[in-house]
Simulated assay, not measured.
Amino acid sequence: MKFINDQYEAYLQEEININRKKRIPDSRVHCCIYFIPPTGHCLRPLDVEFMRRLSKVVNIVPVIAKADTLTLEERDFFKKKIREELRANGIDVYPQKEFDEDAEDRNDQREDQVENIAHCEFAYLRDLLIRTHMQNIKDITSSIHYEMYRVRRLNENNTVVAHANGIPEHHLAAHEM
């Protein structure tokens, strides 16, 4: 979380400069792929708490690690159980609804193990992150996660204004969400 907030802070500092760049370098974290151990049962309390906190600052895409060690029935059951637990714990993940590929994409894929959707959902993940939803992920980062950070920081006793007016950085408090 500190790294994500540090990236938001760097972007904010560029944004509030009097002579800011026409195009601010965007080093914000737009997505976090969260790997869930393939227990087949439920989420660990640690995973629930960490995803709850993380979902407030970044788009989370939960992925079952080593899902190929589960049977298709076990995997489907585990995915359903995870979705229920995420919903019950108020954890927002990306995308809100299950990602479904186009029939065209399915036909264009190579049939090796990683690309074969009968064995692995890597093709879905790649398409989600790179092909179909990349701009949407960036938009959510800008309009929701970064905006919440920005508003909170700008409301913190004018510390950002003080920094812009030349007060040394060591006088500013480092805050995490």
Rank of each mutant, 00 (worst) to 15 (best):
L154R: 12
T159S: 09
H171Q: 13
A88L: 10
E169W: 03
D76L: 13
R44E: 14
I82L: 07
R53W: 01
H171K: 11
A67R: 08
H175K: 13
F77Q: 14
P62W: 06
E98C: 00
E104H: 05
A164C: 09
Y146R: 05
I130D: 06
A10R: 14
V57E: 11
I144F: 07
E156R: 11
K56M: 10
E14Q: 15
L172K: 11
E9M: 12
L154I: 11
H163Q: 13
I16D: 01
C32D: 05
I60L: 04
I91K: 02
N107M: 14
I24Q: 04
L43W: 01
N5K: 11
E104S: 11
N19Y: 10
M134K: 15
S55W: 02
N107R: 15
Q7N: 13
D112P: 02
D47R: 04
C120G: 00
V58R: 01
E111W: 03
N158R: 10
V63Y: 05
N107F: 13
N89L: 08
Q113H: 03
N107C: 09
L154T: 04
L128V: 06
L172E: 12
E101K: 06
N17L: 15
N136Y: 01
K2L: 08
A123I: 07
T39K: 10
K97I: 09
I36S: 05
F50K: 07
M177R: 06
R153G: 04
A174G: 01
T132A: 05
I64R: 02
E84W: 01
V93D: 03
H133G: 00
N136T: 14
N107Q: 15
R131F: 03
L72M: 05
R75E: 11
R83T: 04
E73Y: 05
L125G: 06
T141M: 04
P45F: 04
